[in-house]
Design a protein around this nucleic acid. Structure first.
Lengths: 136, 136
DNA sequence: TTGCACCTTCCTCTGCACTGGAAGGTCAAG
DNA sequence: CTTGACCTTCCAGTGCAGAGGAAGGTGCAA
């Protein structure tokens, strides 16, 4: 299967497929006599895995390691579970940070609507944005 | 005031201050006879504004524009309010995306813990990560 | 044979906000 | 007079995941 066909059937561009080969996320492809990359059917599953793993939030570097351990004949499931759990914890932190920020922005907007631009001094640039640590 | 003093008093590195000048977030600094940058006291307020605006989620490009309009003698408050409202809406979207993902990861972890690594086929790399669109 | 689609490699660019380092100038203290 | 702290400019690199494009080879149809 040529690279364009893989691209069409996987939804991943040819550029990206070559890039994945470069960084070790895909095996180095075998070549047809003309020098074109020639892929087996299984590459589609591999690419599907990569997409899914990305959707879960794993980086290509992490995915590469998972695939490498798979290729060494190990089931990388424990490692993957750790990765996913860590990502999940990251997400929790991130969500609560954003929640916090969201609340602050909301207060800013409410207050901002009631302020008169005429009252805004040049030194502070804009009085809607409060100084860090000391809301004006 | 020399750049190092500004750095010490603002908590922003000298490197960053020069960078801000490059991209137009700070005015081009006047120079002492020896060629060193020489800052007026007000630069501290300006830097405080930049920090606060960043904390609110504005990019340096947005901040630059806000400051530019301030320097043209306009009160940029309306513009700032628009920016903050947009950012707030972005945040809402982002938070709900993350919430969604969080739920999916949670399900993944739960299911993953009950799966046996031995049952995991090489073709799918790791059965904890489901194929996009068709959880295994 | 010409045209066109497709393939190859290699190199650069993107966004964002900086950071690091080299090579050299300046200034005050010891 | 030297040491060391500070300043200057300019160039390159960071992380992440590719995208863009040039120059040249290949394959197939009209």
């Amino acid at each position: 299967m040529r690279i364009g066909t893989v691209a069409d059937r996987s939804g991943v561009t040819a550029k990206t497929i070559r890039y994945y080969e470069d960084i070790g996320v895909l095996d180095v492809a075998s070549r047809s006599p003309n020098g074109y990359r020639d892929y087996p059917e299984e590459v589609l599953q591999r690419l599907a895995f990569v997409r899914s793993a990305q959707a879960v939030g794993l980086t290509l570097a992490e995915i590469r390691k998972v695939i490498a351990s798979r290729e060494k004949g190990q089931a990388p499931c424990d490692h993957v579970l750790t990765l996913v759990e860590r990502r999940s914890a990251d997400l929790d932190r991130r969500i609560s940070e954003l929640h916090q920020l969201r609340g602050e922005l909301d207060a800013l907007v409410k207050r901002g609507r009631s302020l008169n631009p005429e009252d805004c001094s040049a030194a502070q640039v804009c009085h809607i944005i409060p100084s860090v640590g000391s809301p004006s």
